[in-house]
């Protein structure tokens, strides 16, 4: 069991990293032949960095578009960041101070994560327009994330797992010195789904994460009369 999961997780991590690298390289090497920022747009590079930061951290455009989608989407993403940060404690020894500090918030984040996802999922089913554009893969993605959240919360609140053994297993993976994995069902489900998520990442809409940085309508400065735009020259 330990070996199977170790291989699965290595494979997932490898596919995630390589897949993303390939995709990012494709995006970066495809030319942007013309200036097409959605205006009003910043006129300087510094301004573009700020615009991008507002998009990435605050979901500015989404906020303007639809307050509900923004609320659920932002909640889910912010929670995800906290949760990931909280999980660093399984990867570091000794645990970094700031990681120790945010542990309690990580727990709340678990619930916010579920609430955000649930909100998005309900909208997919209830709002006619969004139901129309939703495909099987959109439900699958939500199901994977929900499964990860549910199994994670179960480990904490329903059937506590041997955290010490868990950490030893993960550190073992990191240092190529395999340790036995705790065998509770919640752990098996949690890790299997995490591996699955890593595997589908570079082949799915999760590519929005690197994609947003390459979006010409958002990352170009509006300065064609000041600076000659001549890609490929």
């Amino acid at each position: 069991m330990t070996a199977a999961y170790a291989i699965l997780l290595y494979a997932g991590a490898l596919i995630l990293v390589l897949g993303l690298a390939v995709k990012i390289k494709q995006y970066a090497s495809t030319p942007a032949p013309l200036k097409i920022p959605t205006t009003p747009a910043p006129t300087t590079t510094g301004g573009v960095v700020l615009r991008m930061a507002r998009e990435v951290f605050l979901f500015q455009s989404l906020f303007r578009a639809n307050k509900w989608i923004w609320l659920f989407g932002w909640m889910f993403h912010a929670a995800l960041v906290l949760i990931l940060a909280r999980h660093l404690r399984y990867f570091t020894e000794p645990v970094w101070d700031w990681v120790a500090l945010i542990q309690p918030f990580g727990i709340y984040a678990g619930f916010a994560f579920v609430a955000g996802l649930a909100g998005l999922w309900v909208r997919r089913i209830v709002v006619e327009r969004i139901r129309y554009i939703t495909g099987p893969s959109d439900h699958l993605m939500l199901a994977i994330l929900m499964g990860i959240a549910a199994s994670g919360l179960a480990m904490k609140f329903v059937a506590p797992t041997d955290i010490v053994a868990m950490k030893a297993f993960i550190l073992g993976l990191l240092y190529f010195d395999w340790q036995p994995m705790p065998g509770d069902p919640a752990v098996l489900v949690h890790l299997a789904l995490v591996a699955l998520l890593m595997i589908v990442f570079p082949f799915s809409k999760l590519l929005h994460a690197p994609g947003v940085f390459f979006s010409p309508t958002r990352n170009q400065a509006d300065n064609p009369r000041d600076v000659r735009y001549a890609p490929g020259e």
Partner: peptide, 24 residues
């Protein structure tokens, strides 16, 4: 066209079907 226009290439992958544009 995909090979020569970054916008299209990125936009093909990036949409998450959030629905924010559906009523615009």
């Amino acid at each position: 066209i995909l090979d020569r226009q970054r916008a299209l290439k990125v936009y093909m992958d990036a949409c998450v079907k959030c629905g924010a544009c559906t009523d615009k």
